[in-house]
Amino acid sequence: MARITASVYTSHVPAIGAALDLGKTGEPYWRKVFAGYEFSKAWLRDNTPDVIFLVYNDHATAFSLEMIPTFAIGCAAEFQPADEGWGPRPVPVVKGHPELAAHIAQSVIQDDFDLCIVNKMAVDHGLTVPLSLMCGQPQAWPCPVIPFAVNVVQYPVPSGRRCFNLGRAIRKAVESYDRPLKVQIWGTGGMSHQLQGPRAGLINREFDNTFLDRLIADPADLANMPHIDYVREAGSEGIELVMWLIARGAMSGEFDKRAPRVAHRFYHVPASNTAVGHLILENT
C-alpha cells in the first residue's frame, strides 16, 4: 500500500524563482532565504519520495476568469512550465503520475469532493518555486509530481475546514492505492503577505509563528479559523495558507493523537513582499 511519509510546507514567491534563475542566490539579500533550505535539500536527497502531491494555487496562468475551479487535480503525464509574462522559467518539465492521480481523483470524488479533472495544463511559479527551493537546479526533478491547484484568488474560496478535510480524504486515497509508493504532500503559498493597495507589504510575524505552532500541534482547531482572520492578520494574499491545511490534513498525527516529527522549521522576512515560512513534518 502507498503511504504518506512526510509533508513539506513552503512559501512560493516568484522572486525566489527569479533569484535562482538569474544566479543571484549568493547575494546577501537572498543568501538568508536560501540558507533556510540547505537542510531541506539534503533532507529531500535522503528522503526522495516516489511521488510528490503538490498543493498550490494558480496565479492567473492555467485558469482565467472564464473558468475558475475550486480544486483541480493534474492527471496528465507531464506539465510544461508556463510563460507567466516573463517567459517560461528555465526549469525541467514536471512529470506527472497519472495512475496515482486518477486513483486519488476517483477516491476523493467518491468522498464528496468535487474536483475538476485536468488532463492538460501549464504550471506556474506556485508549483515550480517550491520544487526549486527543495531541489535546487537539477536537470530533472527527482520524482513525479501531481499538481493540485486550489482557488485562493477569486472569492468565494474554500474554507480552512474544507481544505483540512480534503487532506484527510487524500490520505485515505493514497493509503488505498495498491502499490508500495512513498508519497510526500507539499502545501505551498503564504505566509503573511499583501501585494495590493496601500496596505501592500504587510507582514505579521506573530501570526505566522502562531500559525506554525498550531499547524504542528493542533491543526483541527486551526482549520476553524475563518477567512477574515487570514485576510486581516496575514494580508490579502495570506489566505494562501489554507493550502497548508490540505497537506497537514493528510498527515497521520491528527488521527492517532501522535504529533508528527518536526524535521525542520524556518522563518525569514522578507523575500520580496513575503514572509517566508517553511516546515518539514515526518510521519512517525
Binding site: R199, G201, L202, V269, P270, N273, A275
Partner: peptide, 8 residues
C-alpha cells in the same frame, strides 16, 4: 520590507 515589513 527588509526592516520586517509593514506592521499589522
Amino acid at each position: 520590507m527588509i526592516a520586517g515589513g509593514r506592521s499589522i
